[in-house]
Computed example of a mutant assay.
Amino acid sequence: MALPPSEAHSSDDPIRVLDVTTDDYRRAFELFLAGSDEKAVTHAHLLALVEQLPRRSVFLDIGAGSGATTRYLGTHFERTIAIEPSKYMRDALRLTYPEAEVLSDPVETAEPPALADFALCSHMFYFLPESQYLPTVRRLLGWVRPGGELVLALQNPDNECMRLVRHFFDIRFDLAPTAKALGTGHEDLVESCTLETLPVRFHADNLPDALAVAEFMANVPDLAERATRPTHRDLEDYVTTHFADPTGTGYTIDHDHDIVRIKRPETP
């Protein structure tokens, strides 16, 4: 599924800022989904957690995006509430899973109408400064009923995708310090907190698809505001050096996920 020739760029041009509302973003995201086992791996893991719950009345999806995971897990609950500030994503979410109650407020001001038995927050912490990780987790836990669970998902900071991000932008996203901090001093909201890493990978058969997905992965939240961006030549050099399969069968990018599972105590 290589990109058409019209999408080619000069090697000296900076990588593109892929706005979520554009066809460029959609094509890159579709390439990523087609070559990654992320949904299969994470959905199976999350469903196993859901099936262990003592009750499944309310599911809360925080930063629900276009709703694929919302729908996948929401069908196992009596009620689904989704928080999604982006109008573009909310429109897609309503098409994907019209049964969900959708809130448009950002996390800082949202007030879900019911406490959740299971709350999920996937890939939202890229958009927060690290100093806000712990306060935000405590806020999210306030939306979970006693005995319920909050699950956070973020890419592992040492996977190949995040090493690419660190190479070009010198930034790191890591939930491990927050998970460790929740282990003590937060007994009012936390009974237990565990972190595990799920192996996930993307594979492309050809260089154009690998480059398109690498550009998608390099679209850090503040990319548009940065004074300089790596060029397409920089990105191609990195991809061919670090992601080419030794057997010559394509390009593989590991993007393992960290899953933080936080259980609230039965008695607040």
Rank of each mutant, 00 (worst) to 15 (best):
T178A: 15
T96A: 12
P106H: 06
E187P: 00
T96P: 10
A8Q: 11
L154Q: 14
Y251M: 02
A114F: 02
M89A: 10
R264I: 01
A2N: 15
N219L: 00
T22R: 05
A218R: 07
D13E: 12
Y25P: 08
L18S: 14
D174E: 14
Y72S: 04
G250W: 05
A8R: 12
N206D: 15
V102P: 08
Y251C: 02
D205Q: 10
A48Y: 01
H123M: 11
A244L: 09
G148L: 03
T197I: 05
A210F: 04
Y88W: 15
V58H: 10
I83G: 01
F59P: 04
V20W: 09
R261W: 01
Y88H: 15
S10C: 12
L134D: 12
D258I: 00
G142D: 11
D105K: 00
A2I: 15
E225M: 05
S192N: 09
A44Q: 09
P246L: 15
T109F: 08
D174L: 08
P265W: 15
S66P: 12
F173C: 05
D222A: 05
R172T: 15
P54R: 12
S122M: 09
P177Y: 03
V151T: 13
L198R: 05
D61V: 02
A224S: 14
D105V: 00
A179S: 12
E99L: 12
T80P: 07
R79M: 11
L150G: 14
S131P: 01
R172I: 06
P135G: 08
M1V: 13
D256L: 00
A176N: 06
D24Y: 07
Y72N: 06
T194K: 04
G248F: 04
D205Y: 02
L141D: 05
D23Y: 03
L182S: 06
R163H: 07
S66L: 02
G250F: 04
A176P: 01
E215S: 10
Q155Y: 13
V137Y: 09
V107F: 05
H232Y: 09
V200L: 02
A224H: 12
H45D: 15
F77C: 13
A204F: 00
K39Y: 07
D61W: 09
Q155R: 10
T267L: 14
H45P: 00
E7V: 01
F59D: 08
C121R: 10
I83N: 01
R56C: 04
A181S: 13
Y25E: 14
D258Y: 01
A244V: 03
R261S: 05
D91V: 11
D37E: 09
C193S: 09
P268V: 07
L73D: 14
L175M: 13
V151P: 02
P4C: 06
E215L: 00
L47C: 03
L95P: 00
S57Y: 02
H167P: 00
Q155S: 06
P230G: 06
